[in-house]
Computed example of a mutant assay.
Amino acid sequence: MSKSSRATAADVARAAGVSKWTVTRAFTPGASIAEHSRERVLQEAAKLGYRPNLLARSLATKTTNLVAILVDDFANPYKLPVLEVLTQALQAEQMAAVLININQHFDHLSAILDADQRQVDAVILVGTDFKDEALNEQALPASRPPLYVLARESTIAHIPAVSCDARVSMAEINQHLWQRGYRRPGFMSGPRSLSTALGRKQHFNTFWQPHCGAPVPELRAGSYDRNAAAQVLRAYLQHTSAAERIDVLMCENDALAIGAIETARHEFGLRVPQDLAIVGYDGDELAATPSFNLTSYRQPLPQMVAALIRMLKGELPPQSLNLPGELLIRGST
């Protein structure tokens, strides 16, 4: 074998004095093979620089160990830790991620069809704007890979979702704010999506509207971006007298809350929390810094990803799960 050629399983088999199928079993997790044979194969493979051809293996196993991850809101800083934990967990199970950027030129249906052509084993939706008409069973090919939603709720019956329990988390947040004496709440929302809804606003309003006797004001940022949060809060504060303003603002995620804190403090001179208390959601590391000291709710990201991985491996039936997180009480409330 020349130095420029790539070592094959046959080369390793000859060097180790075993059959080609023994080499295959040595690199197959859980395969039946004597330990001394496996060690000899791995030693010779290391000498030759041999690595199994995963593409060729996929033809035999009919699985590629590839998982497509669809993301449509890269402006949301929480996506980075989500992708970090998710890809690390996939790699630990010998799976690899194919990241697909959803944008105005490449929609969700196009991405799913593209992923199907690449023979991925599953598609994970990690974003906000997944529309019913694009994801209904009639629009998708019958042979498509299974779809999952991570870190958001799904309202489409055939797409399971693993998310933080909105009912439990908002009950904890609402109780905390009520005990602190806040009585004029507002809610800052992000993108308005259809198929992957967030129950945070619903559960917040369900608690506060009867307690306050009036609808909860909604500040619609339209995206999970601190600049969008700054713009919508700026407009609210400019057009609302101090006597009529809310005394606590619940933000749909930490990116919005950080933008709100910066605007309230530096543009209007408001004290947080004395003049305006602010709450976020996600448990982002930046929110915990002294500059923001933001009360937030940490999503159980490792547990959510672990449950999703078990579904991908067939150890858990595909199903929607809502897992409890942790309320992080800090100085912003």
Results as ranks from 00 to 15, higher is better:
L237K: 01
R183N: 05
D132V: 05
S296N: 00
V248W: 10
L233H: 12
K47V: 09
T8H: 01
Y281K: 04
V279F: 12
A260V: 06
P317A: 07
Q138W: 00
P185Q: 05
E137R: 13
L66R: 13
R57H: 08
E137A: 15
L286Y: 03
H211W: 00
S223H: 09
S143E: 14
G17A: 08
F27H: 01
L276S: 05
R226G: 12
T263D: 09
R167K: 11
P318H: 09
Y78M: 12
V67E: 04
V67Y: 00
E35L: 09
L323A: 04
D225M: 10
H36S: 14
R298M: 08
D275V: 04
G181T: 06
P215D: 04
E267R: 14
K201V: 08
E326S: 08
F207C: 04
R25G: 02
K131A: 13
L70N: 10
R265V: 13
V12C: 06
P324I: 11
F74I: 07
A287S: 15
Q299C: 11
R144Q: 06
M304N: 02
L256W: 05
P185C: 05
E285K: 12
A7K: 02
Q43S: 14
M304D: 02
L219G: 05
G314R: 12
A255T: 02
M304S: 03
T206R: 12
P81V: 01
K62F: 05
N65W: 10
R38G: 09
G259W: 04
R40K: 10
L80G: 03
N174H: 09
V162N: 01
A197Y: 12
L327E: 04
S193V: 01
Q94G: 02
L321H: 06
